[in-house]
């Protein structure tokens, strides 16, 4: 399977995972070039014994279902009816259908809008804005604001879905009341995509904010001071001093929030993909096809296509991350 062969991108991912700090070089010899180090004499067998139980559990609950999905994807398996009892192998029929199905392309397009709008632009920029604006603030103040923004990130999805449905309600929702129109706009029905994009920005900004906050604290003060003495404007300082320093963090952040947002199921709790499929991002599309529509075989094929897109995204980012700033 494709995703098991990720090591091709290993050196770059390692660089991303360990970040721009110097620590990894000192504490963890990079395995790709140097000899294996085993300073405490753990030994090969004991080490294998340490790792195997976790691998077995992951095999049963993550890899085995994935392989099963792969198999289901070439059958006409359905939740009910004859095809449920004796599914037939149909070869690549499901893939042919998906690749010619406008609803599949629509859900991919909506996902692209959702990921770009809410994660790559929304969470990224707002998170950076928070981190940048709070930089001069006292640590206690910064911590407080971070905690407030963090609330949205920590709450269970069942709770946030209830909150947003209640606040956006057409008749008694607080948003319409504050806008002074009751009954007002049925936000989730008239603007479903805008609603889930704004919702996801609210939900996820905390992570980007905290990551950028950590990144900005690593920008050398001497460079900032030099820029100030040279009379650089805020824009110039951002472009020439701050951005080059946090570039790697920005890439790591964008990769993580893209993958999370791509597979996020929470928008479904707000709109169920509707009305009329207008907010049916892929996670909702797979759920609606498989669990609601009962077309297991078809949804298995879609799942694999989505997986490939995820993998592609990760590889693109890693390729970009590999290019070190001059």
């Amino acid at each position: 399977m494709g995703w098991a062969r990720l090591p091709a991108a290993e050196p770059a991912l390692d660089a991303v995972a360990t970040g721009a700090t110097a620590a990894p070089a000192a504490t963890m010899p990079a395995g790709r070039a140097g000899p294996a180090t085993d300073v405490v004499g753990l030994g090969r067998w004991r080490a294998l014994g340490f790792v195997t139980p976790g691998l077995v559990l992951i095999g049963v609950f993550l890899v085995f279902p994935a392989l099963w999905t792969l198999y289901i994807g070439v059958t006409d398996y359905r939740l009910t009816g004859t095809a449920a009892r004796a599914p037939q192998i149909v070869g690549l029929e499901n893939y042919r259908r998906a690749l010619t199905d406008p609803t599949f392309y629509r859900s991919m397009w909506l996902t692209l809008v959702f990921v770009l709008g809410s994660a790559v632009l929304g969470q990224n920029l707002l998170g950076f804005f928070f981190a940048y604006a709070l930089r001069p603030a006292r640590p206690a103040v910064r911590r407080l604001v971070e905690a407030l923004v963090l609330l949205a990130w920590i709450l269970p999805s069942s709770v946030v879905a209830f909150l947003w449905i209640a606040m956006l309600d057409r008749d008694g929702g607080t948003v319409n009341v504050l806008l002074g129109q009751v009954p007002g706009v049925a936000w989730l029905i008239e603007y479903p995509m805008v609603a889930i994009v704004v919702f996801n920005i609210w939900r996820g900004t905390a992570f980007s904010m905290m990551l950028y906050s950590a990144a900005l604290s690593g920008v050398p003060p001497s460079q900032l001071e030099t820029a100030r003495l040279a009379g650089a404007s805020t824009g110039q300082t951002l472009r020439d001093v701050i951005l080059p320093n946090i570039r790697r963090y920005a890439l790591t952040n964008t990769l993580l929030i893209t993958l999370w947002t791509f597979n996020d199921f929470t928008p479904f709790l707000l709109t169920a993909g509707g009305p009329n499929h207008r907010s049916e991002v892929v996670a909702a599309y797979i759920y609606n096809t498989a669990i609601v529509g009962g077309e297991m075989g078809y949804s298995g094929a879609i799942s694999l296509l989505v997986l490939l897109v995820n993998l592609l995204l990760a590889l693109v980012y890693l390729r970009v991350a590999r290019v070190r700033p001059a």
Partner: peptide
Amino acid sequence: STKMLPVVAGLLP
């Protein structure tokens, strides 16, 4: 890499 699987896809199996 196992975190890249779309979780919804694992639901049915």
